[in-house]
Design a protein around this nucleic acid. Sequence first.
DNA 1: TAAACATATGAAATAGTATTCATATGTTAA
DNA 2: TTAACATATGAATACTATTTCATATGTTTA
Lengths: 99, 99
Amino acid sequence: MNKYYMFFGNLANPLKIEIITLLKEKDMCVLEIAKELGIEQSKLSHALKSLRDCSIVLVERKGKKRLYSLNKKTILPMLEIIDSHEKEFCKNKCARHME
Amino acid sequence: MNKYYMFFGNLANPLKIEIITLLKEKDMCVLEIAKELGIEQSKLSHALKSLRDCSIVLVERKGKKRLYSLNKKTILPMLEIIDSHEKEFCKNKCARHME
DNA sequence: TAAACATATGAAATAGTATTCATATGTTAA
DNA sequence: TTAACATATGAATACTATTTCATATGTTTA
């Protein structure tokens, strides 16, 4: 299985993007994220598992909780590339999709 | 629709990764890509359309052909991030998936 | 301007991925 | 050592994206 496909496939999901957006701000445990996003816990756990499997998020035990953090070293520059890309290349064409 | 989801979703496909890999080397028209990858033309056209829609590939008419090129400014740094990510974070865990 | 070439497109069929729900596992505190 | 809490997991279903196939569009050349 191709690593790029693997990586992009993992991120190609609106819930995972929401998770990432939250974790940009601060580290959180599962129920905090669930509450913040208003979604069910097991759904989140599934999403977090695949993000973890690709080291897109990192996790650390904290008592009976598990504290999730974003792998900022990889993800922040990646999101910045997309921001620049949008600005430079998607003015008209993708605008309707990408807003 | 979220722009990151949009972008990653477009790339989360093994055929599109193959196309991108080819176009890293040189610009090509549809039938050349089709021949190179051994796949059917309309399948390629569909894939190229969505890549085009996000300006991941760019296209230029050349007589009756259409010459596709990779948007290297966006895509090359993005692939490099994944390469580094793999080296640093995926030694054991993702190794089985990502090889 | 008709034939040949190159590519694009729509819609149905199919494959791939996420969601849901029930339940299991692991941790702490009483 | 059990109850309560926090999270993970498996399997069925629902959803979304890709593939296929038939056909349409656009371009060049004879």
